[in-house]
Amino acid sequence: MNRRQFLKLCLTAAGVAGAGTLIGRFWHRRCRVWIHSMDDYRRDISRDVAQVMELEGLFLKGKKVLIKPNFVECHPGRPINTDPSLIAQVADACFRLGAASVTVGEAPGHRRDPWYSIYHSSLRAVLPTQVRCIDLNHGDIVKIPNRGWYTKLKNFYVAAPLAEADLVISMPKMKTHHTMGVTLSMKNLFGNLPGIVYGWPKNILHIQGIDRSIVDLALTMPPNFVVVDGIIGMEGDGPIMGTSKKMGVLVMGKDPLAVDSTAARMMGFDPGCIPYMSRAVIHLPGMLDEMNDYPAEHPRKFASQFQCLEAFRPWQRNGFWG
């Protein structure tokens, strides 16, 4: 080996070590997941949510905020959607922090008719009048490059109000899912994409692989904050045909994978078995329980196994804390 080759080798080794350190730091970045007890939807938690957002460094003053709930189909008695009163409380929390505007937007994947989702009277009736409800399935669209590489999609097309928002708060419902095991904030990203491009259902994403599409979306348009409605979740044949499961908890945080993997554990699932979480682990922090901090309550206190379809029972191992 001559001197030039030796130097080249040293430089390569230093580069690999540096990159490894950076990736390692990122993987091992500690994440905070906030667990708040909430027995029912009557309790006003807007002050608590505002406080957590502030502690997490979210600056909302003068900002345009878009709340993206999971609000896809209204069937009385079925806990399919994020509860409207909780959405209203989070909107209120945003105003407390000085948000210039708050919009609630959703692009349901199966039901085109927005009168069963974002226009539904149960939602409009409880939201403050200054909060607008927007059907993200129809309207102007904006192209944004796909920052992931798990699908073959070069770009994603999103509804203009979503692209124009300064901050996006994802508000999924804690539910089982008949193809992905669980649906939380990362799966909720499907509802960012307009049906006029992707259809009902968003079959392009199915063809590309649901788990792959979720990871690409999480890398391209991660929400700025997540509030999981785990007060009453859905178990069994979710996300539509399941039954209610009382959990009495809100799960919040800035890191979608940290929040989702914590919620999945609370539901009795091993996050490593959830296809999109296992893919996302090399890109996003928060998958390892020992690297997450729980500054409010510990999720162990609320953990309770969700019933699920037979096919997903093997994924329900190592879900709970010891």
């Binding site: 491009v197 259809g199 009902w200 392009i204 063809i207």
Partner: peptide, 13 residues
Amino acid sequence: WPWAKGCFSWVEP
């Protein structure tokens, strides 16, 4: 008919 090229068939399209 699909919603988009290369996709499965659905009721509305």
